[in-house]
Design a protein around this nucleic acid. Structure first.
Length: 571
DNA sequence: GCCGTTTTCGGCCCGACTGTTTTCAGTCG
């Protein structure tokens, strides 16, 4: 698939045109196209061949032609043109905070700045500060931006961000005059990674709240500290990240929460719709002329526009507004819908806790069943089980089962899909398992699509685990044709996993939604290696909700008896 | 560059903050 490649090109064109002072909305059109293509699950080459590109909202004649040109010739004139006299190094500088296209252009024209080194030079020798409408403070802010740019902070995994935001919120709740507080931004939308943490606060005397905020433990730098806004860098064991706080009046808290939750694209959609209705939406409220008709609550804001209060996870401008208008928004799955966890490891392979400990922890979570899925023998690095150890484990499961009431412990395994396409246990063993979870742990570049398809065809395999094998912070997924795999899964009625391990989240939101649309059922599993990991379920739920999944789309929402019937498990 | 139950032309979300100015440009979210 060349989707990603083409998305990158349009992003690059947008940057270049912006730098050159091209009409703002043209730049926007390229950016929008880049995002749409990036999120596309269909192969863009196929869409081009079938002449279906223009059916995608946001892709018109011009962009479609350029895509076709690139796919047939390997080149895009518009890109070459846009980049003819500038370089990627230069455009990268647009990512420096407080340095926008206008200022960069100024530095380029007047001071010959071509890259970061040049930029630093003209800052150091004062020549940038001497330019028209520039000054010391502006240049100072750009310098701060360069500092952050050079640290090139990676986005933070959702679990870390959530943990930190909860600590910050606990701390802030003691701030003087504070009445309401919420995490907003991508964290509230449960995106898989978070750039910075945005906290929204309602309260009187913003200055005092901000003063209290910047004294937060772990702060290594104060980036801004005013009456309505504060911004700090904090350092934890492994991560450095930015935390922003905004203070608004109680009466516009709902409008502000709606606004700061985003996404930006969702907000643009909402505001356009408001405009069509003769209304105006801002972070202060919904206005009809000068009259404010909503703003105190988020629900009120949406209601004023004739819309339901969207779950934050839906607010990505992926068709949610249209769906709401047509009254076909999904009733999203909730955390409490989950009745069991279908992937976890114990001391038998690379887990930390015993079967009994895992089972007891699951009972505490209110689950009715769990599947013990230690690794199979070929996963020797993880202490994978051979047939002898597997049988031994089943004996222990039976013993624990007798001892514990209120939970069904399923005899299962995370069976390796071997390089030759076979499974790591013979069918006669697989047949005896309550649940068979199959996945790839080796030969990431060897025929992955075909191997997974073969596994899907095995009559004893129930679930394909972490189908793309990506690790968010470390590696891209296998070289896999996911669409083909999903088609196969749909054909053979196999379940695809949403792995809730925060570094995996695999399938991701986009592909999980596609799977649902193809009629595939999903399982949300934690892949826990210790009892605390069982709490990762909330991140899997986050992905599922972002994927528009409902309770009925996820097999481990079934109560025990129905679950057992579905999988033909002996009670 | 995209788009159309008012439009094939003329719109395209909205406001705060900052720093530079003396009326506003640039950047951000």
């Amino acid at each position: 698939m060349k989707n990603k490649e083409i998305a990158t090109i349009f992003g690059r064109i947008a940057d270049a045109l912006e730098f050159k002072g091209e009409m703002f909305f043209r730049v926007l059109a390229y950016r929008k196209a880049a995002r749409i293509i990036e999120e596309l699950t269909d192969d863009i080459e196929l869409l081009d061949q079938q002449d279906k590109l223009r059916a995608i909202p946001g892709i018109g004649e011009g962009i479609a032609k350029k895509i076709n040109e690139y796919l047939t010739t390997g080149k895009m004139k518009k890109l070459d043109q846009a980049m003819s006299d500038i370089s990627k190094d230069l455009l990268d500088l647009l990512n420096v905070q407080n340095l926008g296209p206008k200022t960069l252009r100024l530095a380029y024209d007047k001071l010959n700045v071509r890259n970061l080194t040049d930029l630093k030079k003209v800052i150091a020798n004062g020549s940038l500060a001497n330019q028209f409408r520039m000054g010391e403070k502006k240049v100072d802010n750009i310098s701060k931006g360069i500092q952050l740019f050079e640290q090139a902070r990676a986005r933070i995994p959702i679990n870390i961000a959530l943990q930190i935001s909860e600590q910050v919120i606990t701390y802030l709740k003691k701030a003087p005059g504070l009445t309401d507080i919420n995490a907003s931004g991508s964290l509230r939308r449960m995106k898989e990674t978070i750039g910075d943490i945005d906290i929204l606060v309602a309260g009187k005397n913003g200055k005092k709240i901000v003063d209290y905020f910047v004294k937060l433990p772990g702060v290594i730098q104060i980036l801004a500290s005013g009456d309505t806004k504060g911004s700090v860098m904090i350092q934890t064991d492994e991560h450095t990240l930015q935390v922003d706080i905004r203070i608004v009046d109680k009466n516009s808290y709902g409008a502000a929460l709606q606004y700061f939750t985003g996404s930006k694209e969702h907000n643009i959609r909402i505001r356009s719709l408001a405009k069509e209705k003769g209304l105006k939406v801002s972070e202060y409220g919904v206005y009809k002329g000068r009259k404010r008709i909503a703003g105190k609550t988020e629900t009120g804001v949406y209601q004023a526009l004739g819309l339901p209060c969207f779950a934050p996870e839906l607010r990505e401008d992926r068709g949610e507004v249209q769906a709401a208008l047509e009254k076909r928004l999904p009733k999203l799955i909730n955390y409490h819908d989950i009745k069991g966890d279908l992937q976890m490891h114990t001391t038998y392979s690379d887990g930390v806790n015993t079967i009994e400990q895992m089972a007891k922890a699951a009972i505490k979570l209110g689950y009715e069943y769990i599947a013990i899925t230690d690794h199979s023998r070929t996963a020797s690095y993880a202490g994978g089980l051979n047939e002898y150890k597997l049988k031994k484990q089943w004996d222990e499961i039976s013993k624990v089962q007798l001892k514990l009431k209120g939970i069904k412990i399923l005899k299962a395994n995370e069976v390796d899909i071997l390089v030759n396409g076979k499974l790591d246990f013979p069918d006669k063993i697989l047949k005896q398992m309550d649940i068979v979870v199959a996945s790839i742990h080796q030969g990431f570049k060897q025929n992955v699509t075909q191997r997974i398809c073969d596994a899907i065809e095995n009559p004893y395999v129930n679930i394909i685990a972490h189908p793309t094998g990506r690790l968010i912070s470390r590696r891209a997924g296998y070289d896999i044709d996911l669409e083909k795999v999903l088609e196969h899964a749909a054909k053979y009625h196999k379940i695809m996993e949403i792995n809730a391990y925060p570094d995996r989240l695999d399938l991701n939101d986009i592909w999980a939604r596609k799977a649902k649309e193809m009629g595939i059922k999903l399982a949300i599993s934690t892949d826990a290696h210790e009892i605390n990991d069982l709490y990762w379920m909330r991140f899997g739920i986050g992905v599922a909700r972002r994927a528009w999944l409902e309770k009925a789309d996820v097999v481990n929402t079934l109560p025990l008896q129905k679950f057992i019937r579905l999988f033909n498990i002996e009670d």
